[in-house]
Amino acid sequence: MPESEFDYKQLDDIIHSRIRLAIMSVLISVEEADFNFIKQNVKATDGNLSVHIKKIETAGYISVEKLFVDRKPLTKYKLTKKGKEAFKKYVERLERMLGR
Protein backbone atom coordinates (compact mmCIF):
# COMPACT_ATOMS: atom_id res chain seq x y z
CA MET A 1 0.00 0.00 0.00
CA PRO A 2 1.48 3.42 -0.94
CA GLU A 3 2.67 5.58 1.95
CA SER A 4 0.33 8.44 0.93
CA GLU A 5 -2.70 6.36 1.91
CA PHE A 6 -1.69 6.73 5.55
CA ASP A 7 -1.65 10.50 5.27
CA TYR A 8 -3.82 11.99 7.99
CA LYS A 9 -4.12 15.22 6.02
CA GLN A 10 -6.62 13.38 3.84
CA LEU A 11 -9.01 13.26 6.78
CA ASP A 12 -11.73 15.84 7.32
CA ASP A 13 -10.31 18.49 9.68
CA ILE A 14 -13.71 19.26 11.16
CA ILE A 15 -14.23 15.68 12.33
CA HIS A 16 -10.60 14.89 12.99
CA SER A 17 -10.53 15.99 16.62
CA ARG A 18 -11.23 13.69 19.56
CA ILE A 19 -14.21 15.66 20.91
CA ARG A 20 -15.75 16.49 17.54
CA LEU A 21 -15.40 12.89 16.43
CA ALA A 22 -17.13 11.80 19.65
CA ILE A 23 -19.96 14.32 19.10
CA MET A 24 -20.47 13.08 15.54
CA SER A 25 -20.40 9.44 16.72
CA VAL A 26 -23.06 10.12 19.37
CA LEU A 27 -25.29 11.86 16.85
CA ILE A 28 -24.90 9.10 14.27
CA SER A 29 -26.12 6.55 16.84
CA VAL A 30 -29.34 8.38 17.76
CA GLU A 31 -31.76 10.43 15.70
CA GLU A 32 -31.29 13.60 17.72
CA ALA A 33 -29.89 14.43 21.13
CA ASP A 34 -29.88 17.28 23.61
CA PHE A 35 -26.79 18.94 25.04
CA ASN A 36 -26.80 16.88 28.25
CA PHE A 37 -26.98 13.54 26.45
CA ILE A 38 -24.02 14.50 24.25
CA LYS A 39 -22.10 15.78 27.28
CA GLN A 40 -22.77 12.54 29.16
CA ASN A 41 -21.36 10.46 26.30
CA VAL A 42 -18.53 12.72 25.20
CA LYS A 43 -17.42 13.45 28.77
CA ALA A 44 -16.44 17.06 28.10
CA THR A 45 -17.02 20.28 30.02
CA ASP A 46 -19.91 22.56 29.00
CA GLY A 47 -17.63 25.27 27.61
CA ASN A 48 -15.41 22.91 25.66
CA LEU A 49 -18.38 21.04 24.24
CA SER A 50 -20.12 24.26 23.18
CA VAL A 51 -17.04 25.44 21.28
CA HIS A 52 -16.72 22.15 19.38
CA ILE A 53 -20.45 21.91 18.66
CA LYS A 54 -20.34 25.44 17.24
CA LYS A 55 -17.48 24.43 14.95
CA ILE A 56 -19.39 21.43 13.61
CA GLU A 57 -22.54 23.52 13.27
CA THR A 58 -20.67 26.20 11.29
CA ALA A 59 -19.45 23.48 8.92
CA GLY A 60 -23.09 22.54 8.34
CA TYR A 61 -22.70 19.04 9.75
CA ILE A 62 -25.32 19.45 12.47
CA SER A 63 -28.57 21.32 12.78
CA VAL A 64 -29.64 22.97 16.01
CA GLU A 65 -33.19 23.27 17.25
CA LYS A 66 -34.01 25.42 20.27
CA LEU A 67 -37.31 24.77 22.01
CA PHE A 68 -39.05 24.92 25.37
CA VAL A 69 -40.15 21.78 27.20
CA ASP A 70 -42.15 22.38 30.39
CA ARG A 71 -41.07 26.03 30.19
CA LYS A 72 -37.41 25.02 30.26
CA PRO A 73 -35.12 25.77 27.30
CA LEU A 74 -33.90 22.71 25.44
CA THR A 75 -31.41 22.56 22.58
CA LYS A 76 -31.51 19.57 20.30
CA TYR A 77 -28.81 18.61 17.83
CA LYS A 78 -29.18 16.47 14.75
CA LEU A 79 -26.77 15.39 12.02
CA THR A 80 -27.52 16.97 8.66
CA LYS A 81 -27.29 15.06 5.39
CA LYS A 82 -23.94 16.76 4.77
CA GLY A 83 -22.79 15.68 8.23
CA LYS A 84 -23.82 12.07 7.69
CA GLU A 85 -21.97 11.96 4.38
CA ALA A 86 -18.86 13.55 5.91
CA PHE A 87 -18.90 11.02 8.75
CA LYS A 88 -19.34 8.15 6.31
CA LYS A 89 -16.43 9.39 4.20
CA TYR A 90 -14.29 9.80 7.32
CA VAL A 91 -14.88 6.22 8.45
CA GLU A 92 -14.34 4.89 4.92
CA ARG A 93 -11.04 6.73 4.72
CA LEU A 94 -9.91 5.27 8.03
CA GLU A 95 -10.86 1.81 6.82
CA ARG A 96 -8.98 2.35 3.58
CA MET A 97 -5.91 3.30 5.62
CA LEU A 98 -6.21 -0.08 7.28
CA GLY A 99 -6.62 -1.77 3.92
CA ARG A 100 -10.15 -2.99 4.66
Binding site: F6, R18, L21, S29, L94
Partner: peptide, 15 residues
Protein backbone atom coordinates in the same frame (compact mmCIF):
# COMPACT_ATOMS: atom_id res chain seq x y z
CA UNK B 1 -6.51 4.69 12.41
CA UNK B 2 -7.29 1.44 14.20
CA UNK B 3 -7.68 3.27 17.54
CA UNK B 4 -9.86 5.91 15.95
CA UNK B 5 -12.23 3.32 14.51
CA UNK B 6 -12.35 1.55 17.88
CA UNK B 7 -13.14 4.87 19.55
CA UNK B 8 -16.04 5.54 17.15
CA UNK B 9 -17.36 2.01 17.69
CA UNK B 10 -17.29 2.37 21.48
CA UNK B 11 -19.00 5.76 21.48
CA UNK B 12 -21.78 4.47 19.22
CA UNK B 13 -22.20 1.33 21.37
CA UNK B 14 -22.32 3.36 24.63
CA UNK B 15 -24.83 5.87 23.25
Amino acid sequence: AELELEFIKNIIKDS
